[in-house]
Amino acid sequence: MTLLVEALHLRKTFGETVAVEDVCLDVKAGEIFGLVGSDGAGKTTILRLLVGAMQPDRGQIEVCGYDISRNVEQARARLGYLSQKFSLYEDLSVLENIRFFAEVRGLAASEWLPRSMEILDFVGLAEFKDRRAGQLSGGMKQKLGLATAMVTRPTLLLLDEPTTGVDPVTRQDFWQMLIRLVSNSNDGNNGQQVSVIISTPYMDEAARCSRIGFMRAGNIVAGGTPAELRALLTGRVLELRGEPLFLLRKIAGEDKDVEDVQIFGDRLHLRIRSGTAKEVIRRLPRQVTSGQGRVAALGMVPAGLEDVFIALSESSHGGS
């Protein structure tokens, strides 16, 4: 399978700060690769290195078969980048914005005009092509941002937290578009398959990626398919329901085999030490009952990515 991105042993520092340390990453054709991690973990720096916006201190990057340090122009011609704080010209119309970004990328009118109508159709903005960008809703701006990144018919899209601060409806629409783009049969990119690297703070979005890299302090500390990552906590997550919640929380939190307690809506997720499930399941209900509480259900559940995220981000903090 073709590698669209191959990055080896990347390191990037800003003064004293090591933003990215020994990161290796590869993305195959047709994949959606998710970068997740805390703020400042290095996600944005990696994306900027991949688009050639900055040079790594060490390491190599090949994008779409081109060495970024030597052939950055050829590589860039094949990728679309949507930065976290992308800017649109609010006093230009939707179409004029696309035209601007197309011309910056060196496309002639004969190329960008049919292309932009095709993309606007795809993102659902065709009927708003003459509306000024400043008059668009937040969700529509997001779609226009994606459209500008797609104008060059990229083989690779790099999206830096495109859905942060966006409501669930817009996130749905945005992801349905991404899934169409990476599928072979999509109509948004002239039938050409697109691969995506996306950073996101939403674990439900991470669950949709082909593969994920969990970043922490400049490193990718765990990587794999969502199923592989969830398997890291197999047998270590219990779900506890009952009442009162605060009592359940307190009792669970004091248990010697419970490493972490989280509220998920009206229930608790307990992360327990490996191999202690049976004992905890036997022990906790008795303690809750003697504390005048009630356990409605307690049992093992498959770990969610949020459980994994929290476990991974805690394991290294060294108690800080």
């Binding site: 703020d39 937290e161 942060t164 601060g165 703070p201 989280q262 949020e306 995220f309 929290i310 981000s313």
Partner: peptide
């Protein structure tokens, strides 16, 4: 007003 926008799951918790 959107106090947790752009904050990771651990910090949100």
């Amino acid at each position: 007003d959107e106090p947790t926008s752009g904050v990771d799951p651990t910090a949100r918790r």
